[in-house]
Design a protein around this nucleic acid. Sequence first.
RNA 1: GGUCCCAUCGUCUAGUGGUUAGGACGCUGGCCUCUCACGCCGGAAGCCGGGGUUCAACUCCCCGUGGGACUACCA
Length: 468
Amino acid sequence: MTSEKMRTRFAPSPTGYLHIGGARTALFNWLYTRKHEGTFILRIEDTDQARSTEESTKAILDAMSWLGLCWDEGPYFQADRVKIHQEMVEKLIDEGKAYYCTCQPEELEAKRKQALAQGRKPKYDRTCCERGLAKSADSVVRFRCPDVGATVLRDLIKGNISFNNEELDDLIIERADGYPTYNFAVVVDDALMGITHVIRGDDHVNNTPKQIHLYEALGYEVPLFGHVPMILGADKARLSKRHGATSVMAYKDMGYLPEAIINYLVRLGWSHGDQEIFSMEELIGMFSLEAVGKSAAVFNPDKLLWLNQHYIMSYEEERLIETMLPFWRERGFDTSDHRFIRKITADLRPRAKTLVEMADSGTFYFREDVAYDPAAAAQFLTPEYAGHLEAVRDGLPGLADYTKDGVEAFLRALADQRGTKLKWIAQTLRVAITGKTVSPGIDEVMVTIGKESALRRIERAIAASRQG
RNA sequence: GGUCCCAUCGUCUAGUGGUUAGGACGCUGGCCUCUCACGCCGGAAGCCGGGGUUCAACUCCCCGUGGGACUACCA
């Protein structure tokens, strides 16, 4: 087992977008496989014909790609493999390891309720087990699951887990419509695709003993399992829509960087001493299932935000500019002047937690007729401060060194000259130029927009100030 | 109900019998400062409870309690 090449898989069902929890499972699979130079397979589990959609498949693929979780094989579609599944079902029937069952869902449900009410186990009573039924229109196939002894799952993350086989059920492996059920299809496909390590959410732990029996009944080698803990919402309930965005692509739209998502997700359940920031390369080198914790983790949006801010600040410049373009464009701004965009990005990036925040806070760069924030205007665009603006207007044209340092020196000198502090002139200018009391350093802003634009904005603000 | 899993600051976690229980997010006091953010310095905040085992338990065992998962012709 150790000498042969590792093969892993991520097997989402296309019944919705790729959510945070699935993304982490995929990430752990991916990292583990990269680290051990194995093969990572993507398989779409679409045997539920009623709920699976092509849009979902596409959405999942897009999200995987955006996160950089490339797959080496696939995507395979489980629904394309039903013939194989059916052959395997027949094989089990021929060998007496499975049987046809004609119990109707309604009666099964009634028995289940009754058993529960009487405090008994709601497991199938094997009504059809020895009847030797043949295939019929509404028959399903059940696996004759061992009901004595115990099954031990040697989990790579959780350790050894033992199950009494009497707890197990004669599960349905083929539905009336001829499609295999999850527990059967997953075993057949994992076995036939040569999966050596099954890394998945721990909501599958209780399915695993049944699957182990299926592997054995089919004559397959049982793979290694690693069950990763769930991700919970703030109320400790399984993460869902009501906890906010759970779709990976929703985070893209909200201005998050894939590196931040990856970094956040990997630290949810996995750790490497005190280290918080990891590059993909580091992760591939350091990742191990042994270091994955056993307990569920609560999703913390604030920490994700912090990481996003970190990656915005440390991103390679051109890459950040490129990533920002859609956000500017969707706001209708002209991004053709690359030098201008680059300066704006440099001004804004140290103070944005998301790309959306960056775009929203930088609208003033693109329009000179900024809307004045009422409170800001009330305080600074007044006759009292208009003198500062007029002094800047009068002095600025003669300023030869129109750079950040040059402008700052100019403003400081002006403050001295006028017997005031720089902060009063700077804040007045900030409101005049950006319309707000919060912005990047006013010297940086003035350099970025250029002297002419700055003068026009100041002139406009003076007019507003003199009006009262 | 049954089965299985889990349990260190609010949250993510380090810790593997002897530590002043460490880090991070968030919160918070201060510094820096043209605003904001960054950065720097400091603070509050934790071993679920009870029994054992041991010279010594956050750490090992048992029992509670709490949380989660599964118990489908979903995956």
